Simulated assay, not measured.
Amino acid sequence: MTQFNDWCLSIDEPIGNHFRRVMTGQAANLATGIQATAAIVPGHYASEESVARALSRLVKPADRRAHRGQASDNEEYPFR
């Protein structure tokens, strides 16, 4: 688990029966924050290829053919 206290200041603010934590990275500890974040991101997110494979398995073959190559200029369609 990332030790945010090593590179962030945090303040808890009450909101009803809950709390909101506001975390602010400290410039003097930026390198520590970058290293800590880089270490945990790969385990928390799937690669683009993994997501594309999973979505391909969920789409019917006829739908996949209908959508192939129909991405807009500003997005990439994973079912090619």
Rank of each mutant, 00 (worst) to 15 (best):
M1H: 14
M1P: 02
Q3G: 05
F4V: 01
N5Y: 06
D6S: 10
D6L: 15
L9Q: 09
I11N: 12
D12I: 02
D12M: 04
P14L: 09
P14Q: 13
I15L: 10
H18A: 13
H18C: 04
F19I: 01
R20V: 10
R21W: 01
R21T: 11
V22G: 03
M23R: 03
T24I: 15
T24D: 00
Q26I: 09
Q26W: 03
A27I: 07
A27M: 08
A28I: 04
N29H: 14
N29Q: 14
L30H: 08
L30Q: 09
L30N: 02
L30D: 01
A31I: 04
T32H: 05
T32C: 01
G33A: 10
G33K: 05
I34G: 02
Q35W: 04
A36F: 04
T37I: 09
T37S: 09
T37L: 11
A39Q: 14
A39L: 08
V41Q: 15
V41A: 14
P42Q: 13
P42T: 08
Y45D: 04
S47Q: 11
S47M: 02
E48K: 11
E48M: 06
E49V: 07
E49G: 05
E49K: 12
S50Q: 07
S50G: 05
A52I: 11
A52N: 03
R53M: 06
R53I: 06
R53V: 06
A54P: 00
L55R: 15
L55M: 15
L55A: 11
S56W: 11
R57D: 01
R57Q: 05
R57M: 07
L58W: 05
V59F: 04
K60L: 15
K60S: 08
P61W: 12
P61S: 05
P61C: 11
A62L: 07
R64S: 08
R64F: 01
R65H: 03
R65W: 02
A66K: 14
H67K: 09
H67F: 10
R68P: 05
R68D: 12
G69V: 07
G69L: 09
A71M: 10
S72D: 13
S72G: 10
N74L: 11
N74E: 15
N74R: 15
E75I: 12
E76T: 14
F79N: 11
R80I: 03
